[in-house]
């Protein structure tokens, strides 16, 4: 089973303050902590599980800065075999179609059975790259996969997670791109031994020229959309904030609920 797994280095903004830079199209990321995108972490784990069950070989692909090497090595510490980090300022990273084209360019010409990606990046929420990548490669895809079974080494039975908790079960032949949903498995921790072995594995750094990708096809001019402006939306809360010590807050809330006939 020859696999590629695509991962993205994203900031954790769940509890951080987000500020837009003066350029109006980027945010101040100096105080963010970055790590692997959540869904991609599950994709890495799934690829390693498939490798463990079927034998195989996994190449990590990521577009990102030097600082993301630690994240990439972490995927290798968990069992991926080698990695290519693509670093090129010319890529229009805000457009997932351009990103898919770059990833496609990096895979093209190589044999593969599976490409795994996370189904969504937690920073920009597009849910687009994986499916677009399949089209770039001219292969099948299944998105939002919550369970995978490899049949006879030739086919994949994949369970897609739909709204409302329903799962759609489909079969497709290899090669295929799967976009992985969170919760599909329990991502492991990298053991120290794996971490050390990962340092010996190949991490190739490539720019567009190295990959034979024409920059004019993936840059901001090539993109059919423009990131015009970023802004912080006004969050309006009409909530009544209950103040006081925790006990007082609890008592106040209890009487609101009871007096209001809510309970």
């Amino acid at each position: 089973m020859k696999m590629f797994v695509c991962i993205k280095y994203v900031p954790d903004t769940s509890e951080a303050e987000v500020k837009v830079n003066p350029d109006g199209v980027s945010v101040d990321s100096s105080r963010f902590s970055f790590d692997i995108n959540d869904a991609d972490n599950y994709a890495v784990e799934e690829s390693v599980l498939i490798k463990e069950a079927n034998e195989g070989d996994i190449t990590v692909l990521s577009i990102g800065p030097k600082q993301s090497d630690v994240m990439i090595r972490m995927a290798m510490a968990k069992g991926c075999d080698r990695a290519v980090r693509i670093e090129d300022e010319r890529i229009a990273g805000y457009d997932p179609l351009m990103v898919a084209k770059v990833l496609g360019g990096a895979v093209k010409g190589q044999e593969f059975d599976l490409v795994l990606t996370g189904c969504m990046a937690s920073d920009d929420w597009h849910m687009t790259t994986g499916v677009a990548l399949a089209e770039e490669l001219g292969v099948n895809h299944v998105s939002m996969v919550k369970k995978v079974e490899i049949l006879d080494g030739k086919k994949v039975k994949a369970y897609r997670e739909l709204e409302g908790g329903l799962m759609e079960v489909v079969e497709v032949e290899l090669p295929v791109v799967l976009t992985i949903q969170t919760g599909i498995n329990e991502p492991r921790y990298a053991p120290i031994r794996g971490i050390r072995e990962a340092q010996k594995k190949e991490l190739k750094v490539a720019n567009l020229d190295d990959l034979g990708i024409d920059a004019a096809e993936v840059n901001a001019d090539a993109s059919l959309v423009v990131l015009e402006q970023l802004y912080i939306p006004q969050v309006e809360s009409s909530a009544e904030f209950i103040e006081g010590e925790p006990d007082v807050k609890a008592e106040k809330l209890a009487s609101i609920l009871v007096k209001g006939g809510l309970v």
Binding site: A100, V131, A132
Partner: peptide, 21 residues
């Protein structure tokens, strides 16, 4: 889950711009 399963591929195939979500 339906829309995201074909629109990106359609955009690539037809070379059309897509904004998701």
């Amino acid at each position: 889950a339906q829309g995201v399963d074909f629109m990106p591929a359609l955009a690539v195939e037809k070379k059309l711009p897509l904004v998701a979500d």
